[in-house]
Design a protein around this nucleic acid. Structure first.
Lengths: 196, 196, 196, 196
DNA sequence: CATGAATGAGAATTCATTCAT
DNA sequence: AATGAATGAATTCTCATTCAT
């Protein structure tokens, strides 16, 4: 029994190592630019081993994508709290985004600065939609209280998230350092955009 | 002479056809996922012909990137005008972005929804930097008059552009239609973010 | 002791299961087209277990081949009887072939409708030669009594066996059903070919 | 124009070289045991070149099969002649088989001593059926005149062809030399089997 | 003894690039 | 200058075999 658990743990470790290696390389070289043997090497496993955990490169790409999206979802869900004013709620969400980026920069960059259209499967798209919808609900609530501007929630979210991703991309391009104080200022700016 | 000009015109046509074909395919399949023979086919030229106009696939990728970026730059430069209030100036720029997207959706998507890090050369990066800097200057001017919030211009630009790109990406994801009225509303929101 | 016997029995079972699984798969997918893990799966054993019973895939292929050939040999030897007229003797042998096919269709198809040249070892070839030689002797006896045509026995056997295998192959191709009455008729035809 | 023809000729040469190389190797190593690069090497072309002429290894296997079958069909069709007695007609066909083997031993061995079930496509099967049906017609005609035994033509053909293939296989196994005199004798034996 | 996860050499196939025409 | 057939290195993926458990 203990043995079986150890095996599972090892398998989970390998799976995680492969996912982590793939995430890093997809960021550096893009999905299509990353050879599987390189993923294997960085994960410290044999090339064939990847195929014990993932059906194909495409499946690996989707697994990486979903693992990142679900990580973000969990991160947000853990921090969101219903008993807050809209302004406080927005602050929580914005800082959650920031913490997610700070703690998982690779995941955040992979999700948001790459184009996944050519390989995402239906499950991945559904996952992405679910996360987006969850954030939309939050905006909808704020609109109900009159604290947040009226208008299609999806449009507001697209712009607010876009602003955050813009910060990530341009700081990656070396135009400024994305530290806590910038993020704090940015929070106020985005709130100025959203508030009624 | 007339012949020489006709030849140049043909050559320019072919070059343009190759660039256009590559742009479309890079958007659909990503840079690394696009085979050169497919570019040739869609451009209506022989595979070898591409190499008369571009040294390598990487060179083609950079040419596409620069052609798109310069298109954007030209588009913006043509519309910007020094004798406007900051609010008017911002409106001009925002609508210029929108028109650029409306008239060159492929170029806009390629520039902003893909990650080019693995193949961009120094010239491409410099072009990108120049466009960004030009927009920064505009913000700096507005800040000087006190009409635009203080703070690092690059950060403001990153967020404003990010909001626009967020609209493009999420509308592509089918979350809403990106039409003129949405863009008009969005202009106000972003101005709310930028104004002092 | 009882334990040791049980173990042997289990081992024999596993060996037999592996041989049977391999035989079926070699027929369906050919020797080179059959993966060892699939053999293991169909035999209900672990992939590594096969290598406790057989040195290599090639050794397994040879074991399957020899087991089939020896099965055929035994089948024929059990039925052949020295005190018969040549015609009766031929009838016995022909029907033995037919029964072998009826009772072991996989073995018969594997032996006779596949080309084993690329992996058979000396022992397998020797086994095959021995079976062929045994049948040749039978023909030689018939020739001695004048009941069977003169001529090289090997040629006569090649043709008679060939006719039988032709029936198997073409019935497998769906051209007719190979039932007892066809085989009975065929016996007469082949005898017409062999008799003096 | 002359140029275009030359190109076609070169392409046909390459295609033929690939088919010939594949045929030889499939005989030696079996279809599944033959690596594509080895086919390329023996054909004197690059590995990628094969895929300009054949979609996949399976397609190559089917092309080889069909080219051999059609070669046999042509060979038989050229020699068959309606104005012969059944005995003469059979002699013509038997010798045609023999000449086909003598002139195209690789094709004959590939067609008849290998099992193609795991990769043949519908076209290949149809080709095979057509050749078999053509030979069946011939037997049917002989039966109509009363010169050939009654019974299902397919069964008679299966046995007659089987006898021929038996000669090929056992001579390949080194049991005797398959020369003209053996084939002549064999003709009589098979006729003894077929005649009324 | 039995297992099956792990491996890496080798398989099929693709594709950036060249070059004879 | 333009072509597109040819190439072979590189890619994705498979599988015979091993070995820790």
């Amino acid at each position: 029994m203990a043995q079986a658990i150890r095996k599972l743990a090892q398998a989970a470790d390998k799976r995680a190592a492969i996912l982590a290696a793939a995430l890093g390389l997809f960021n550096e070289l893009s999905f299509n630019g990353t050879p599987m043997p390189l993923v294997a090497q960085r994960a410290g496993v044999g090339a064939g081993t990847i195929y014990r955990y993932f059906e194909s490169k495409e499946a690996l790409g989707n697994a990486v994508y979903q693992s990142c999206k679900l990580g973000l979802q969990r991160h947000l869900a853990e921090r969101v709290c219903p008993d807050l004013t809209p302004r406080e709620g927005f602050g929580v969400m914005w800082r959650a985004l920031w913490e997610f980026f700070r703690d998982n920069p690779a995941a955040c960059r992979f999700l948001e600065t790459h184009n996944h259209a050519s390989y995402l499967d239906a499950t991945s798209v559904a996952t992405s939609d679910a996360v987006f919808a969850a954030i939309c609900d939050f905006i909808g609530d704020g609109q109900a209280t009159g604290a947040i501007r009226s208008g299609e929630p999806a449009v507001l979210i697209a712009m607010a998230l876009g602003a955050f991703i813009g910060l990530v991309k341009e700081s990656d391009a070396g135009r400024f350092a994305l530290d806590g104080s910038v993020v704090e200022t940015a929070e106020e700016l985005v709130w100025a955009m959203l508030r009624a």
